[in-house]
Amino acid sequence: MSTAKTVPPSFGHEAHEPTLYQARLEPYRSLDRRGFVIVMVVVAAISFVCGTAFLLMGAWPVFGVFGLDVLAIWWAFRMNFNAARAREEITVTPSLITVVKVDPAGRADEARMNPLWTRLDRETMEDYGLQRLALRSRGDVVEVGGFLHTAQREELAEGLSFALGTAKRGVVRSTP
């Protein structure tokens, strides 16, 4: 499930400046672990019954092919679940944009940009909506939300645009 939220400015002891925008993006998967087990049991049962029918008719190699089909489906689901472990974390403050991308293996790649020098690039196709969203700063380009649905990417773009605009206008800080 992907989540993006605008965080009200925080002036806690840990934070020296307000958080203008914060989002944690995760790929959506409609099938959970329990559903995966149910699907695999049903597929394996159907393959076993059909394979047994072919085995009784004398076409014994087909029985093995049904087993390979079950194995291929299981492998495809495992790859899908592994890819779902990727995530992106975006934080915008008045002086820093931090984008942390974590790949499925858990390796993190962090990009830091100054919001005053950062531009939000949008690639839109008339029939399909927002297709690509990237933060561009002094020659560095970081694509964000690549695995999101178009509507979710639009929501992310609105939040980032608002946060960048707020950072460029300046944030009024109160003294304690």
Rank of each mutant, 00 (worst) to 15 (best):
T3K: 01
K5D: 07
K5A: 06
V7K: 09
V7M: 14
G12W: 08
E14Q: 10
A15I: 14
A15H: 14
P18W: 10
P18Q: 04
Y21F: 13
Y21D: 02
A23P: 00
L25I: 14
E26C: 04
S30H: 12
F36G: 02
V37Y: 09
V37P: 01
V42I: 13
A44F: 08
A45I: 09
A45W: 12
A45S: 10
I46H: 07
V49I: 12
G51E: 04
A53V: 14
A53I: 14
F54K: 06
G58E: 15
W60R: 00
F63N: 03
F63S: 05
F63M: 06
G64P: 02
V65N: 03
G67Q: 03
G67R: 03
L71C: 08
I73E: 09
W74C: 02
R78E: 07
N80Y: 02
F81W: 09
A83M: 07
A84I: 05
R87H: 15
T91S: 05
V92E: 03
V92G: 02
T93N: 06
T93L: 05
P94V: 02
S95N: 10
L96I: 11
L96G: 08
T98Y: 06
V99Y: 07
V100S: 14
V100E: 15
V102M: 15
D103L: 07
P104T: 15
G106I: 11
G106C: 13
G106E: 15
E110T: 14
A111C: 13
R112Y: 02
R112S: 02
P115L: 08
P115T: 10
T118Q: 10
R119G: 11
L120G: 01
R122G: 08
E123P: 00
M125T: 11
E126I: 06
D127K: 10
Y128A: 08
R132K: 12
R132E: 15
A134Y: 08
S137L: 00
V144P: 10
L148E: 04
E154W: 07
L156H: 12
L156Q: 11
L156S: 08
A157H: 05
A157S: 04
E158Q: 09
G159S: 03
G159F: 06
L160H: 06
S161L: 05
S161V: 05
F162Q: 06
S174W: 15
T175I: 00
